[in-house]
Write a protein that binds this DNA or RNA. Structure first.
Ligand SMILES: Nc1ncnc2c1ncn2[C@H]1C[C@H](O)[C@@H](COP(=O)(O)OP(=O)(O)OP(=O)(O)O)O1
Ligand SMILES: [Mg+2]
Length: 652
DNA sequence: GGGGGAAGGACCA
DNA sequence: TTCCTGGTCCTTCCCCC
């Protein structure tokens, strides 16, 4: 149905993301929900904007259909050959030796809120506000209420709905509890966002001689014991499938696909493609309307057409989905690439208001950057007009900035160029962080302490450990629709997500080294470097209780009093005068959290440094990535300690 | 051709 | 009355070497 404009049932053609069936939508009267959403949305600016987008998508689909119609039999048999070859290669890469478990908390935010306030139990609950909700519990889902639905519509669907504002500290706390459990079962587990994790349970299952079912049961029990929260689990030979599985018996359930090719193929055969991570609303529509693909199995059946119409990248991903392949190797530890903040407000074109708002956003961004000692050189202003049109305007600078003043200065210039304009949102994003092309040398200071390196010694060991980074990109993973036939929509994979959780599971406390261009090494350097002031370095060593050649136990460290000269953070060099009490508290908390986190994962770090791990990762890289690898400068560079404290600069 | 920057978009939780 | 936030990755298009 869909795109036809039907007169008597107009709501049927209005598809918003949350009308799609995911978990917990079983007994829902879909038509009624759809109608309410339509009635509530009709005529709004948002609605008009969605209609424009749908029209655009329809155009894209039409183009693709025309393209498809042009294919001759000869073309098709040619692409069939290409496809067959790809399938053979992909099949050869199938790895059934690993057992992966994906764990996903049930209605996570809502469940945590219920834990803190048992009076909410059993009642429909949404976390969020009247304008937007983050998630809803299963009682609310029965009414059609879902994540990413505006609260006022949810309230219409479910008049008794209780709203609770989100409280991320709480969620982080409970998330950490779950991670304590995961850690026990797989010290190398991969955390994704706050409520998800992947565990490689191959060894545990084999060593203990327990089945996948038993393991999943035990793990879910352990999580419940620790947190009082339920989760669902999926077990499969790769992460992509494990994630699909964890959704099947939600909530509080589990589903297993054995490590057997036939089992995988039969599981995948009738699976709707939308269940696959990386296939969203647009891809689903395109593949259905252009090629009639609904299930994963049909990806293979229509393989020749896919090869004919989509990019290499896309087809490799699609075909691998059809074969039930996914990442099995250890993932990449990626560093944060950008940091951003944005605010929505009621639309206005009043310039004084907009510039005030921009100053707020700049201040927030600057503070967030300081918490993590980041300095960037590309600033992007994001605008959303009253009509929901989104614009980005970027500048790349010669120098790295992080201060509110600098950010606001450049952001204002970008904004001025767009005015006059009625806006409902403004955001700022910083990227291109200092040293971001020198991964191998980037290291967390905490690792530095753990490694117990002498300040004056080379950092061979550290760079080795961070040099371990590999690409987890697999052939199967990222695909884009060939732009020559409509434009690029992107597909990603189960493993690409590895990056999000790095916020939590992996340290982001970067300590950068001199990027030897003679620039950008000033501020903190001036204050701390041996050259400019040897006594400062001594002071710092004292302060951080540095013991030469011996690992320091971080939990015994006091993080609080590390302000060199009472205004420079000894850990990262950022400068915060004593009067900035709140900022300093936050900053200290940040370091403390990092250290605790790091300390917990020390074992993992060590493990990763072992050679066999290296080999495995290298192999994996070779298998998957078709994209050119950026070679990281491999070297035994000698990095002096002061270079480690060259941090965010004040650039004033 | 490819690198880097800018703009836009799909997708995820 | 009313439709979020913060992140990733990837495309295309452009300029430049
Ligand atoms: N669009 C969104 N914006 C902001 N936060 C979101 C959004 N979607 C999801 N979240 C948050 C809230 C969720 O509790 C959390 C985890 O997402 P997810 O696992 O998909 O749902 P859930 O854990 O609430 O329910 P369940 O997993 O049982 O379906 O991420
Ligand atoms: Mg969940």
């Amino acid at each position: 149905m869909g795109s036809s404009s039907n007169g008597d049932r107009p709501w049927q053609s209005y598809h918003t993301a949350y009308t799609n069936a995911k978990a917990g939508m079983d007994g829902v009267d879909k038509e009624k929900v759809q109608r309410v959403i339509y009635e509530m949305s009709k005529g709004s600016k948002y609605f008009e904007s969605e209609k424009r987008k749908e029209a655009f998508l329809k155009q894209k689909i039409d183009n693709l259909q025309a393209q498809r119609a042009k294919l001759t039999d000869k073309d098709i048999s040619h692409f069939q050959q290409i496809c067959d070859k790809k399938v053979v290669d992909l099949e050869a890469s199938r790895d059934l030796s690993k057992i992966w478990l994906h764990s996903d908390m049930d209605a996570f935010y809502a469940a945590v809120e219920t834990l803190g306030n048992p009076a909410l139990r059993g009642k429909p609950l949404a976390v969020g506000s009247l304008s937007m909700i983050s998630t809803a519990n299963y009682e609310a889902r029965k009414f059609g209420v879902r994540a990413a639905m505006p609260g006022f519509i949810a309230q219409k669907l479910c008049p008794d709905l209780t709203f609770v504002p989100p409280n991320f500290e709480k969620y982080t706390y409970y998330s950490n509890l779950t991670r304590k459990v995961f850690q026990k079962y797989d010290p190398n587990f991969i955390a994704m966002g706050l409520d998800e994790a992947y565990l490689d349970i191959t060894e545990t299952c084999n060593n203990r001689g327990i089945s996948r079912e038993e393991f999943a049961d035990e793990l879910r029990h352990a999580v419940y014991e620790e947190t009082g929260l339920t989760c669902s689990a999926g077990v499969a030979p790769n992460r992509l499938l494990a994630k699909v599985c964890s959704d099947i018996n939600k909530p509080n359930g589990q589903f297993i696909v054995p490590n057997d090719r036939n089992a995988v193929l039969s599981f995948i055969s009738s699976l709707p493609i939308r269940k696959i991570g990386g296939i969203g609303k647009v891809t689903e529509h395109v593949l259905r309307d252009v090629l009639g693909i609904n299930t994963c199995e049909e990806m293979l059946q229509k393989g020749a057409l896919l090869c004919a119409m989509f990019s290499q990248c896309s087809t490799d991903f699609f075909l691998s989905v059809g074969l039930g392949l996914g990442s099995t190797g250890p993932p990449q530890h990626t560093l944060r690439k950008s940091i951003s903040t944005e605010r929505t407000f009621s639309a206005t074109e009043e310039e004084s208001f907009l510039f005030e708002k921009l100053a707020d956003v700049a201040e927030t961004l600057s503070k967030d950057m300081q918490k993590e000692c980041l300095c960037g050189r590309t600033l992007t202003l994001k605008l959303k007009t009253a009509t929901f049109e989104v614009r980005n305007r970027a500048v790349s600078l010669q120098r790295y900035i992080h201060s509110k003043e600098d950010i606001l200065n450049y952001a204002s210039k970008l904004l001025k160029a767009e005015l006059p304009l009625s806006l409902r949102l403004m955001g700022l994003r910083m990227s291109q962080f200092r040293d971001d092309n020198l991964d191998p040398m980037q290291k967390t200071l905490t690792n530095f302490f753990i490694s117990g390196e002498d300040a004056t010694k080379s950092l061979t060991c550290i760079s080795k450990s961070s040099g371990l980074e590999i690409s987890d990109k697999q052939i199967t993973n990222n695909g884009y629709l060939d732009s020559s036939f409509g434009n690029g929509s992107c597909f990603s994979n189960d493993s690409c997500n590895v990056s999000y959780e790095s916020d939590y599971s992996l340290s982001n406390l970067l300590v950068e080294h001199n990027n030897n261009d003679g620039f950008g090494v000033n501020s903190v350097d001036d204050a701390l470097s041996v050259k400019s002031n040897p006594s400062k370095r001594e002071k710092m060593k004292e302060l951080i209780n540095f013991s030469e050649g011996e690992a320091v136990h971080l939990s015994n460290q006091k993080v609080e009093p590390l302000w060199v000269d009472d205004y420079i953070c000894a850990l990262c060099g950022i400068q915060l005068p004593p009067s900035f009490t709140e900022e300093r508290q936050e900053h200290s908390d940040y370091h403390l959290a990092e250290m605790l986190q790091k300390e917990e994962s020390t074992k993992m770090t060590r493990h990763l440094m072992q050679p066999e791990r290296l080999v495995e990762r290298t192999k994996k890289t070779g298998e998957g990535s078709r994209k050119k690898q950026k070679l990281s400068p491999k070297e035994d560079k000698h990095i002096p300690i002061e270079a480690f404290f060259i941090k965010c600069k004040k650039s004033l």
